[in-house]
Design a protein around this nucleic acid. Sequence first.
RNA 1: GGCAGCGUAGCUCAGUUGGUUAGAGCACCGGCUUCAUAAGCCGGGUGUCGCCGGUUCAAGUCCGGCCGCUGCUACCA
Length: 704
Amino acid sequence: MPATHPRRILVTSALPYANGHIHLGHLVEYIQTDIFVRFQKLRGQRAIYLCADDTHGTAIMIRAKAEGRSEQELIAAMREAHLADFADFQIAFDHYGSTDSPANRRLCGEIWQSLRRRGLVTSRDVTQLFDPVAGVFLADRFVRGRCPRCDAADQYGDSCEQCGATYSPADLVDPRSTLSGAKPEERSAEHLFVTLEAMHGFLDEWTRASGALDPRVANYLIGHFLGEPLRDWDISRPAPYFGFEIPDAPGHYWYVWFDAPIGYLAATSEWCAAHGESFDAWWRRGGTNEPPAEIHHFIGKDITYFHTLFWPAMLEAAELSLPTRVRIHGFLTVNGQKMSKSRGTFLLARTYLDHLDPGMLRYYYAAKLSGGIDDIDLNLPEFAAKVNADLVGKVVNLASRTARWLEKTGLSARYPDDGGLFAHAAADGTEIAAAYEACDFARAMRAIMLAADRANLYVDTEQPWKLAKAGPEAAAKLQDVATVAINLFRQLAVYLAPVLPKFATQVGELVGGPIGSWEQSQQPLTAAPVGTFIPLMRRVEAAQLEALLSQSSEQSRETSPGVPAVESQPSAQPSPATDRPGDSGDALAAEPLAPTCTIDDFAKVDLRVARIIMAEEVPEAKKLLKLTISLGGDVTRTVFAGIKGFHAPEALVGRLVVVVANLAPRQMKFGLSEGMVVAASGAGAQGVYLLSPDSGALPGMRLH
RNA sequence: GGCAGCGUAGCUCAGUUGGUUAGAGCACCGGCUUCAUAAGCCGGGUGUCGCCGGUUCAAGUCCGGCCGCUGCUACCA
C-alpha cells in the first residue's frame, strides 16, 4: 500500500518509428506498459507514462522523397495516425512527444557536450556505398546484386538468401541501388564515434549489480559484449541525413539511435514544462530531497543492447539517473507464425479496431504476458474462446445475471453474509498486486478469474431467480444475494481496471461511482443505487475474425507490390461454368479465396489417389465413418472422414478418392486418423462431395 | 550462416531454491441449472514432461550432446 510518500515512477515504451503504422506487434509493448502504469496510478503512486515518435534517419528521408513531400509533413501525418491508434486502444500517455523537437535538440546537445568533456568522442573515415543519383549513402539493404559466391540474382548487400554467404555490399556482382537503380560507388566520409570501451567498467558493474536487468539478459550481455573490448559506436552520419546537425561538427548529423532514447528525456522535459514539475527531480541525481524517481523502460528484445549498453553509458556520462528497470518482452506471432502480409496476418491496429473491441486484445495480451522475454502468440480461435469464456461468460455475465434484481431497490443497507467470499477476494488483492508489479499479468488474470468462478458458483448456489419467483417474503434475501454478486463483480472490475479501463468506467456508472483506487477492492458497497444493466461486451463471433483477416489480406495486396494480386489473374474471359444455371457465386462468396500460396507451399501437401477398401459405421459418432484406404501395394491407412449421412459405407468400398497422404496423424475419439479424404463442401452446407479421379488413375498416384 | 528463445494433455500455457500421485483453461463427453449475451455449476481422462546420456538418495527442474520449432539478423553482433 502506498506510504505517505508515493513512489515516483517514470515509465517509457520504445518510440515507434514514423515510417509505418502501429500494428498488433507494437501493441504488445504499449498495452503492457499502459497496464503497468495504470496499475501504479490505481495504487496511488505518482507514475507518468512518456513516449514519442522516432522521426529521424535515412528511411524517413527516402520515404519523404518518394512521396514528394517534406520529412516534416510525413512525420506529422504519421504522428496523427499513431496518436489516434493509441487513443483508441486506451493507451494513456501522460505526454507523447517527438524526437524532432526543440527539447530533444537541446538535450542531445547537452549529452553530447558531456561525452565531449569526458573525451569519449573520436573520429575516423568510413567507406560506404553511395548512390550518385539519389545522393545518399546506402545501407546494406538498399543495395542488391548477384551473389559473389553462387551468382544468385537479386540478393541483398549483406548476405545471400540462396547460398547463405555473407559479404559486404562492395563484393556484390553488378550492384545497384534499390532507390534509383544506379550503380553505387564507394565513398569515404568522416564519422564520429563514442569510445564505449572507456565505460566498460561501469557497464560491467551496472549490468551485473544494478538489478535493472533480468539475469538472463545480463548473462547475454556479458557473454556477447562485455567479455571483450567494446567497439566504438558510430554515432554520426554525413549529409544528407534527416536529423539534427551536430553543433560542433558541421556537416555531421547524429545517428537516429543517438537521438531516439534522448527522446525519453525530451518528453519528460516537455511534460514537466506543462505541469510545473522539475526535470531535475526526475532525472538528475540528487536533484531533490525526495527519494529518487524510478525509471522503467519497456522495450522489445530486438533493441536490448541499445538500452542496456549505449543508453546507460550516455546517462552515466551525463550524470543522469540510470534506469531502475529495463523490461524486455518478446515478439508477437499470429497463429504460431510471424506476422505475414501474404498470410493476411500482418494486422494493423486500425484494421483490428474496425472489427473488434480493443479491450479484448488488452485482456488477451494480459493473459499471455508473464514478464519474460518469450514471444507471445495471438491465436485467433483461442482469442475468441478466451475472451468469450472469461470476459463475457464469467465477468460480465455476473452483472448480467444479477443487476436487474437491484434496479429498483439498490444495494442492501448492510453487507450480507457471503460466506467470506468478498474478504477472500480482497485478500487475493495482495497476490494480484504483486503479480501486476512483477509484470506477470498472466498470473494476475488467473487469480482474478478464479475469483470470478467463485462468484458465479455463489450465484448458482443461491439461485436468485427462484427467490424472485418466491414472492415478497423472499425479497430481502434476493436483494442480499444480488448485493453480494454485484459487489464481487465490482471488485473484479477494480482488479481489472488497469487492463480494462473503459470497462471499469462503465462498471462505475452502473454502481458505486468512478473506480480510481485499488482500495475500492477492499470494502464492499452498501445502500447504493444500481443502474440499468446494458451489455458491456459482446461475444466475439468467428465471422468477425474472418472479416478481420480478409480485410487485412486485401490491404496487404494493395500495399505490397511483391505479392501478386489476385485481381491481376486473367479472369475476364467468360468461363463455361458461369453460364450454367444454378452456378451462382454463393459458395465462393461464403468462403473467400485463401491468400496466395507458392508452388512450394503446395508441394508440401502430398495428395494421392487412394482406393477405399473398407468402410465402417462408427456407431457412437455423429459425423464420422471409419475408412480403410489403400495407397497401392500393401500400404493402407485408417482414416476417419466426416461424411456420415452423406455416403452409405457399402457404396464407398472400391471407389477411388483423393487423400492428403502426408497429413500429420490425429488422435480422434474413436481411433487414430492417418490422413484426410478430400471432399467439397461449403456455402449452404447441403452436402459433402467426394472427389474422384478419371478412370485410369491408380492408387498411389500423386496429384501435381 | 550468426545469435536468441522455446519444446510439458488434442490446443494455449502454469510448474518457485531439484522433493509425495506433474497442474489450469479451452476443446470433448455426461449430468444439473434456466437468472444471464448459446451464459453458469458439477463430474469425467488424457501425458514415454522433444531424444540420448550424465550428476544426485531424488531430475519436467541441474549439466552435456543431438533433434525439432520459432524469432531476430539494423551502417551493428
